[in-house]
Design a binder for these strands. Structure first.
Lengths: 201, 201
DNA sequence: AGTAACTCGTACAGCACTGTTCGACAAGGG
DNA sequence: CCCTTGTCGAACAGTGCTGTACGAGTTACT
């Protein structure tokens, strides 16, 4: 499911596939910059007429959902290529390094989705990615290197929050984009350290 | 400066003052629920005609700014009543306990402001509150109980992020509102602990 | 009591956006 | 090569918002 309606029929023309891809890409990009980007704006960015867009996506809501799904799918692929075995702390560091930029870029897009999509729909969409992270955190807790006095969802939420904070700081010019990964990792590893243990670093 | 235009003239009538207060309160409340609340919506919530509102605030932007200023002023007062002396860690815990709810409530309002106000304007408005928190963090760093390998603005940002995370978790029904303070404190204190030191708790 | 300040509803112009329709035109597939 | 599929621009109706105007009514200060 790439997002556009594809009920049946003898498959789509090559032409249309290109359009859909361009629209999806433009939608992700535009909505990432401005969660309230209009359909006209997106169509223009995709180099496509507004009418054409409506030919593939029945309404704005479906378009946003398709864009979100597309972004998440891409992120999912990137995530799968990260080695999550070994010391959970180092695995977490690797995960952060390779995904914080992606997560950041999707933030505004997620905001756009939250404005128009039913809450359940969103949870379903990025249930996959979240599960892998939760698995890693869970393992760290079992091995005693991550704290167990706070719930796993909370810890994962903290990870996200700190990433968002990095995005804000960069955006405000107070943080160098190069150092963001290290800052996030240092902060999160400390936050995850069990009470009574020493903070690594 | 309560927010409405008050250039000169022989002072305002008691009637008008009541209206302005009601509008401001309604604006804070409505914008906190929905950052894109319309002027009609706010006027109705204030029990006032839309025209009356425009009589006091020339346009929507000024209204949002006044609402934000009002909320920040109230928060500033609440913050001033917190004792920030003594062990920085305990002072931070006190600060969190007494302000996280307030900060949370203002979050959506801040979002509304970010959408329509010039970025500099916002920084000016809540420069005051931020300074006090930064002062506390700075002191903790000097005393060696908070880490110095990360910048003060970053640490303050993390504090905010974790508060926001708590708000999200509560909103999603995954966190009990009662426990939020403790969760935030535990997480932030760990995150602020210098590398090599033991996490308190 | 009288006057200026305030409030209200309705109504209007202007704008931006959504979603649809139309007719003409280009491009891909069998 | 022909026919389906897709694309385009222009145009339209519908909606919801902002900001302004008007006129009549009400409320507070003196």
């Amino acid at each position: 499911m790439t997002g556009a309606k594809q009920a049946k029929g003898p498959a789509r023309r090559a032409d249309a596939q290109r359009s859909i891809a361009a629209i999806l890409e433009a939608a992700v990009s535009a909505l990432s910059r401005n969660p309230e980007a209009s359909v006209s704006e997106i169509a223009k960015a995709a180099g496509v007429g507004r009418v054409t867009l409506y030919g593939h996506f029945p309404n704005r809501v479906d378009l946003v959902e398709a864009a979100l799904a597309s972004a998440i799918e891409k992120g999912h692929a990137a995530l799968d290529s990260v080695d999550l075995t070994g010391d959970p702390r180092q695995a977490l560091a690797r995960l952060i390094d390779s995904s914080w930029l992606l997560v950041n870029r999707s933030r505004s897009l997620l905001l756009a989705a939250q404005g128009v999509l039913p809450p359940g729909r969103i949870r379903i969409l990025h249930a996959g990615p979240v599960e892998r992270v939760e698995g890693l955190v869970e393992r760290g807790r079992d091995e005693g290197v991550f704290r167990s006095d706070l719930s796993t969802p909370w810890l994962v939420g903290v990870l996200h929050s700190v990433m968002h904070n990095a995005a804000d700081e960069i955006n405000a010019g107070r943080l160098d984009s190069e150092k963001a990964g290290a800052f996030i990792t240092a902060t999160v590893l400390a936050a995850f350290t069990p009470p009574g243990s020493r903070v690594p670093g």
